[in-house]
Each structure stands twice: as C-alpha cells, then as structure tokens.
Simulated scan of single mutants.
Amino acid sequence: MRFAGLITGAAATALVAAGAITYAVAADANTQDAKTPTADSADAGFARDMAVHHQQAVEMSYIVRDRTTNAEVRRLAYDIAQTQANQRGMLLGWLDLWGLPKVSADPPMTWMGMGDMASGKDGALMPGMATNAEMKKLGQLNGKQAEVFYLQLMTDHHKGGIHMAEGCVAKCTVGVEKRLAQGMADAQQSEIQLMAGMLKERGAAPRS
C-alpha cells in the first residue's frame, strides 16, 4: 500500500496546484507587460500537443480501470486520469484565454523543431503515444495481462510526455506554463519509477 499513498499524495498535490496555476496565468495575462503567445509559438504548440497527448492517457487509464480488479493499478489509473484531465483542461483554457485555435495545420511538435519527424512508431501521432492497434489490444485484455500492458504503454507514454514537457521548459515564454511543464516532467518521471516496480512485481519490465 506504500505505492498507493505516494500516488494519491502526488495526485492531490497536482490537483490543488492546478487551481492556483489557472488563476496565476489569468493574472499574468492581465498584466500590462504580459505578451500573449502567438499561434505558432512554443507556448501554444505545447498546449495543443500536450492536450492531445494527455487525452490518450486519460482514455487508456479508464480502459484498464475496467479490465482489472487490482486496487493498486486501478488507483494509479484513476490518479493519472484525474490529473491529466485536469491539466488538459488548463492547457485548452489557456488557448481560449490567448484567443488561439486548439488545432493547427502544422504537424505535431513543429514548435519543437520536429514537425514531420514527430510521428511515433507504427503511425502513433506523437512519440510515446499508443497506436490504435495497441489501444484496441488493451481493451481486449483482462487481469494481469491488462495490468502489464497498461503499465508498459503508460511508461512509454510518460517518456514521450517528459520529452515534450522538457521542450516547453526550454522554449516556452509564459512562466506559469514553463512551471507546469517542469512539474509534469518531474511527476511523470516519478511515476515511471513507480511503474517499473509494479511491472517487476508482475514478472515483467518496461518495453524500452
């Protein structure tokens, strides 16, 4: 149960911080010297792409919640879904605040200088994201098999998310967004370590 406490504590901290971050970015945007990001900025690109990235993590987590009765995995999945759904709402809210579109004609991660190179393996939209075939497979597994596959998929997902978050830390200009991105990277790295332990308990290991 030690892991469960750590997960719940981290998720609670992230959710409490979310409200403060939302108010902070609104305050930043209302100051005279605040510069509203442009549609092709790293700030907007990160908000758009991470919102898409997060949405799949939420979907994946709700799938596994219904495919296993294991309390530890269900709790992890719930915490990831709640945290990332909350953060996704913030990212989309910022785009509204800035008066910017939520979709772009440019390939994902163009703001990182990756563009057409951003597609992940086997047609995944971005690095770390699961393919349609993998999402379908997760929905067909049960019990331990579902747990292992979810932990492997989410580990890859977090690695891709960390790469993107670190890109925002380096390139974004809105301070509160940079801080959120750093918080994402730190939290997801901790969860990667947690999931490695959970995989080991199940006689498995990360895929990469």
Rank of each mutant, 00 (worst) to 15 (best):
K137H: 13
W94G: 03
R88V: 02
A24T: 14
D106C: 04
G123C: 11
P108V: 12
A39L: 10
G160W: 05
A124K: 00
D96N: 15
A57P: 01
M109F: 10
A170I: 06
M126T: 01
M109N: 04
F149W: 01
Y78Q: 06
T13W: 00
F149C: 05
G123Q: 05
M154F: 06
R202H: 07
L194F: 08
G203F: 03
L6H: 07
L95Q: 14
A27Y: 09
D28A: 05
V58S: 06
G89H: 10
A71S: 10
E147V: 00
L151T: 00
K121W: 10
N70D: 14
D96L: 15
E191T: 08
T8A: 12
V103D: 13
L199K: 03
A196V: 08
G19N: 15
S104I: 03
A17T: 06
Y78G: 03
S104N: 09
A205K: 11
A187G: 13
V64A: 09
D66G: 11
N30V: 00
K200G: 04
H157R: 06
K178Q: 14
E166T: 08
M90N: 13
W94M: 11
L100N: 07
A205P: 07
T31E: 12
A12Q: 08
R207Y: 02
D33Y: 10
F46T: 08
V25H: 12
A26V: 03
D96S: 15
E191Q: 14
L97V: 06
L180Y: 02
K137G: 14
G203S: 09
M114N: 02
L153Y: 02
Q82T: 11
H163M: 12
A71D: 11
A130C: 11
W111A: 01
M135V: 14
L97N: 11
D33V: 01
C172P: 12
K171P: 01
K178M: 07
M135E: 03
E166R: 14
L153W: 01
Q32R: 02
E59V: 15
K136W: 07
V58Q: 07
D122A: 13
G183S: 14
Y150D: 08
N86M: 12
V103Q: 14
G167L: 02
V169N: 09
G128L: 13
H53K: 06
M117R: 11
G5D: 15
V73Q: 07
A4C: 05
V64F: 04
A44S: 15
S41G: 09
N132H: 08
I162F: 03
A170W: 01
A34T: 09
I7M: 12
Q193H: 13
L199V: 09
A27M: 10
A146H: 05
H54N: 09
L180I: 13
G161L: 07
A34D: 14
A170T: 12
A10K: 07
K200Y: 02
D33K: 00
P127L: 12
L92Y: 01
L180K: 11
V58F: 08
Q87Y: 02
Q55V: 10
A42W: 00
K144E: 15
R207W: 03
R207V: 06
G139E: 01
G113P: 11
